[in-house]
């Protein structure tokens, strides 16, 4: 069995929105410890991993199951979440469906038909990073939106005291600079200078669910994939994004 209740359907909508911008489908692996999932986008440039420990749920009961979900349909349903709705996710094993229930003044129940994605699980690799930037989510998001006016990709640079996002266009350019003294920065760790270039469309998709008050962790290397981590209402999201490399 699987039945889980979340305090805020609206908060979970942000998680589903973010997953749906990068992926077409995902296989949720549920067990008594919580819900996990990991998948790569169709072009194999980005990887998303989701971990919702059982403590993030108001109620939680689960045996081991793999629940394959078509994300566009799930996103459309989650768009119907209202401010005070709680969310119940419940596996109907007989009908092979996931019930998505909004609980408020009554119950509104959608039954989402499941996909067979067994065996399609993605292993999350361990990469080693020396530079870690912990930054306020809205500052990062605004800098990426600024850069989007200038180019379709950015260069991220990190040194022991500074983090920069640069975009170069044919005529114009943009730089966002954050020093460890700035309000936007929680911490900058690392002993060397590193830089990598990344596609902006992917970066903007990855920060889609981020809003004011969220804290984002960035792991950066030289021409290495970017690792990004943040939490939304107890749901831990991790992304890897392959870099652009000079030819």
């Amino acid at each position: 069995m699987f039945k889980a209740k979340l305090e805020s359907a609206k908060e979970f909508k942000k998680v589903v929105d973010t997953m749906a911008t990068l992926l077409d489908e995902i296989c949720l692996q549920v067990n008594e410890e919580g819900v996990r999932a990991a998948a790569m986008d169709p072009s194999h440039v980005a990887l998303l991993s989701l971990n919702i420990p059982r403590i993030a749920f108001e109620d939680y009961q689960a045996d081991e199951h793999e629940i394959g979900i078509e994300l566009e349909a799930f996103k459309k349903i989650m768009n119907r979440a209202k401010a005070k709705d709680k969310l119940i996710l419940e596996l109907d094993e007989e009908r092979n469906r996931l019930n998505v229930i909004f609980e408020n003044q009554g119950k509104r129940k959608f039954s989402l038909s499941l996909l067979d994605l067994s065996g399609a699980t993605t292993k999350v690799p361990e990469l080693e990073y020396h530079n870690v930037i912990t930054i306020k989510g809205d500052a990062l998001k605004e800098a990426l939106k600024d850069a989007d006016l200038i180019s379709d990709h950015v260069i991220m640079r990190a040194s022991p005291y500074e983090f920069k996002i640069e975009a170069k266009g044919d005529l114009n350019d943009f730089t966002a600079e954050f020093s460890s003294e700035d309000d936007a920065i929680i911490s900058i760790e690392g002993e060397e200078e590193v830089k990598s270039a990344f596609n902006l469309e992917y970066l903007l998709d990855m920060v889609k669910g981020v809003s004011k008050g969220d804290i984002v962790k960035l792991y950066l290397g030289n021409d290495m994939p970017l690792k990004m981590e943040y939490s939304l209402a107890g749901c831990e999201l991790m992304f890897l994004l392959a870099p652009r490399i000079e030819e």
């Binding site: 072009s43 690799p125 596609n199 652009r244």
Partner: peptide
């Protein structure tokens, strides 16, 4: 000129 690479260039997927 830079080109987009895939995650599989960095680890086995």
């Amino acid at each position: 000129k830079s080109k987009q690479v895939k995650l599989s260039d960095f680890f086995k997927v």
